[in-house]
Design a binder for these strands. Structure first.
Length: 746
DNA sequence: GAGTTTGAAACT
DNA sequence: CAGTTTCAAACTC
């Protein structure tokens, strides 16, 4: 970071930044920083080159240098991510990166997204990849291969994946370079996509033994081990990373970076590392818990950063993509530099120079960005994850869990699945990834969602978006807003509310919910949170009686809207009703009139009945029928997933809240208790959330998941609600989170 | 696609 | 805390 700042030239930044009328000077300053990071890239190159002089000798190196332009782009990506948002922590696996396996072409698109970056990236990336030695080529090839794989729905995701893949190798190399604590040996599998073996000797605090099964999380363990979670964050990070800066950040923030297969290990401390990496996985994705920074993340820098970045990437969606691009470039550069020589060793060489590190830094930056964004997304994702099988992951300690935890239901579930599939598709990653992926899958899903959303640009019109979303569960995941006056800085904006940046597909006007305006976004978030700490928390909490269903079948009945609805005319039978939208029944918290919520009436009428109705209803009913409790929308995703769902796509912040702001908040406030009196109710909700998590312990899924249609069983209606209180206990677990997150925010 | 309805979010 | 306004999604035509 430091380097960046120094190096950065405001003027350059300006160029990069799109002028926003609204942006305040402060914002601009922030932007500058970020951009600086980007800008840095170019300048750095030169710098890097110097340190690398040794390498320079090699023709390859020279070649790479010529390619240098790419770097700038990378930086851009970084900017996009929300540092603050990072909460998400999710270090969880980023499947997303893995996911990236898909198409390159799309990947390019992504870049396009990035705007400025695009052009360079696309062309450059390709070139670099090419130029960058065989390793790179191999990666590309793999990518292309992946591209061949039909992506389910989300081309975007695919593209991203591809991009990730590409990056990964590089990242690995980078990691290699970095003297970070963990030493990783990296080997390419060759033809395979970027499967790499990472052997890391990470001391990582939290090493999750990932076996393939890792995905499954033990909520219990998680809950039980708050410490772990905490450790997970900070400790691991700190420990793991030798890197100088990192430690600082670590403490609170989590980052889950999936190193896609490769990178992770090192920098990031992942529980997985130990086992997962070494043995198993060849390509394990590490989840790095890095802390990061979120906003501040700088510290992680170097290796961490990379790992983190990659991880973040996975997490991120929209932002991720961009960042991904950038990171990739960075990696490429690094790689090019390093790889050009020879990957592993070259790295070392590189290390010495700060410049060399730059890339890392950049990455770190990117990671930062990622984190924030991720965090939000993660929440959503997490929710998804929870639902998903993946949840099972053991990794209790890991940040992943955190991610998983999120009760919130993300609409995107479906998409996520797709993503998952996509991941699976990618050969290289599959192996490695999956194990973690399962866990990551969730994340990936989320990512996928995001990606889809973002990428699905094609669907520009809101209406179309909606349609698609409705039609395809996947699309649902994607959030696209149509804000006209709120500048996407109010909770009116679904994107903002969900903790994600607006993407092209959004039809918003004068949107400030973009990486460029990260500062503004963060500031706004803080404001809103100050007003209502739970504002970004998941709206739908699982009250659940754990017993009710299993993972797969969470009846909606178990979940409830945190604050309840206030419907007057819709009878809680329309999506106007947040409860209904979330696929949950109304509760005593609701002030609705004439409640007919199919998922459960305020008065506690049978859920079953309700459910049936839903089914009957058709479209909306879908939720039930199609899936469990989840709102109909999600349908597709839901299917497989049982999800949690909060249903709409929106809310799934649960974790996010926790991870991101909420967590912070908690920290500040004191986790559940903390906050303002008014908030208490809300907190209750939050508490519930945590509780949910705990409940989930048994089965993460239980969390939000929705109702299992099959089971139809009615959870003891609202009586359950009453039970919630008991659940509150769960909250305790949460506190840990706060600890984790604390710093991140700023 | 435009217009209306709805209820959350924001404001007073 | 209550009432009003603003906002954008959901919905209807």
């Amino acid at each position: 970071m430091k380097l960046v700042t120094t190096k950065v030239k405001p003027s350059q930044n300006k160029n990069l930044l799109p002028a926003h009328p609204a942006s305040s000077s402060s914002i601009s300053s922030h932007l500058d920083r970020k951009y600086t990071g980007i800008v840095m890239d170019t300048p750095e190159r030169t710098q890097i080159a110097t340190p690398l002089s040794k390498f320079e000798d090699s023709p390859v190196f020279n070649y790479i240098n010529s390619l240098s332009p790419i770097k700038p782009v990378k930086s851009v990506h970084f900017t996009q991510t929300f540092s603050t948002l990072s909460f998400a922590s999710i270090p969880s696996v980023f499947t997303s990166p893995h996911v990236s396996s898909l198409k390159d072409s799309k990947f390019l698109k992504r870049h396009q997204f990035s705007d400025q970056l695009k052009p360079e990236l696309t062309s450059k990336d390709a070139k670099k990849s090419e130029t960058s030695e065989g390793t790179l080529n191999a990666t590309e090839n793999s990518i292309t291969d992946t591209s061949a794989v039909p992506s389910n729905g989300c081309s975007n995701l695919e593209s991203r994946k591809s991009s990730y893949e590409v990056v990964r190798p590089y990242t690995n190399t980078l990691k290699m370079v970095v003297p970070s604590a963990s030493s990783v040996s990296f080997t390419n599998n060759g033809s395979e996509n970027g499967s790499f073996r990472m052997e890391t000797e990470t001391e990582g605090t939290n090493q999750l033994p990932h076996s393939k099964e890792v995905s499954a999380c033990d909520w219990d363990s998680l809950i039980s081990d708050d410490s772990e979670l905490l450790n997970f964050n900070s400790p691991s990070d700190t420990v793991t990373y030798n890197g100088p800066g990192q430690s600082t950040l670590q403490p609170t923030s989590f980052n889950a970076s999936l190193m896609n297969t490769k990178p992770q290990a090192n920098g990031n401390s992942f529980s997985e590392n130990d086992e997962g990496f070494n043995g198993d996985a060849e390509n394990h994705v590490n989840i790095a818990s890095t802390s990061l920074n979120n906003s501040e993340a700088e510290p992680l820098e170097d290796t961490d950063t990379e790992g983190g970045s990659s991880l973040y990437r996975g997490l991120r969606r929209r932002c991720l993509v961009f960042e991904m691009m950038g990171s990739q470039r960075k990696h490429l550069e690094d790689v090019s530099t390093c790889s050009s020589a020879n990957v592993s060793e070259s790295n070392q060489i590189v290390v010495p120079d700060d410049d060399n590190l730059r890339p890392l830094r950049d990455e770190s930056d990117s990671t930062r960005c990622i984190l924030p964004g991720i965090g939000l997304h993660l929440n959503a994702i997490a929710s998804n994850l929870v639902n998903h099988k993946v949840v099972n992951h053991e990794s209790p300690g890991s940040g992943r869990q955190l991610i998983i935890a999120p009760p919130a239901a993300y609409p995107s579930m479906g998409s996520g699945q797709e993503l998952m599939t996509a991941f699976s598709d990618s050969p290289s990653f599959e192996n490695d990834i999956r194990p973690t992926l399962n866990v990551a899958d969730d994340a990936s899903k989320a990512l996928g969602f995001v990606v889809n959303d973002e990428f699905s640009q094609s669907q520009t019109s809101p209406a179309k978006k909606r349609r698609r979303a409705e039609n395809a569960g996947e699309s649902e995941a994607c959030k696209r807003c149509n804000c006209k006056k709120s500048k996407c800085l109010k909770l009116y904006c679904e994107c903002f509310a969900a903790g994600v940046y607006c993407v092209e597909p959004c039809s918003c006007h004068e949107c400030f919910n973009k990486p460029i305006h990260e500062d503004t976004v963060l500031a706004t978030r803080k404001q809103i949170e100050s007003r209502n700490p739970l504002a970004f928390a998941p709206k739908v909490i699982k009250t659940s009686d754990s017993l009710q269903e299993d993972e797969s079948s969470n009846t909606p009945s178990s979940a409830r809207h945190k604050r309840g609805c206030n419907c007057k005319k819709s009878g809680c039978l329309k999506k106007y009703c947040e409860c209904y939208q979330g696929g949950v029944g109304c509760s005593i918290n609701c002030r609705c009139e004439g409640c007919k919520n199919a998922f459960g009436r305020k008065d506690g009428l049978d859920m079953d009945f309700e459910v049936n109705e839903c089914d009957k209803n058709g479209s909306e009913a879908e939720p039930v029928s199609a899936t469990p409790a989840t709102p109909s929308r999600f349908g597709s995703a839901r299917q497989s997933i049982s999800l949690l769902k909060s249903s709409k796509g929106k809310p799934p912040r649960s974790f996010i809240a926790i991870g991101s702001s909420s967590t912070q908040r908690f920290g500040k406030l004191n986790p559940f208790t903390g906050g303002g009196s008014k908030l208490q109710r809300q907190r209750m909700g939050e508490n519930e959330m945590p509780g949910i998590l705990e409940e989930n312990n048994g089965s993460p899924i239980s969390g939000v998941k929705s109702c299992s249609p099959n089971s139809k069983r009615v959870s003891p209606p609202h009586s359950i609600m009453g039970k919630r209180s008991s659940r509150k206990l769960i909250l305790q677990s949460i506190p840990s989170f706060p600890c984790l997150i604390p710093n991140p925010n700023q």
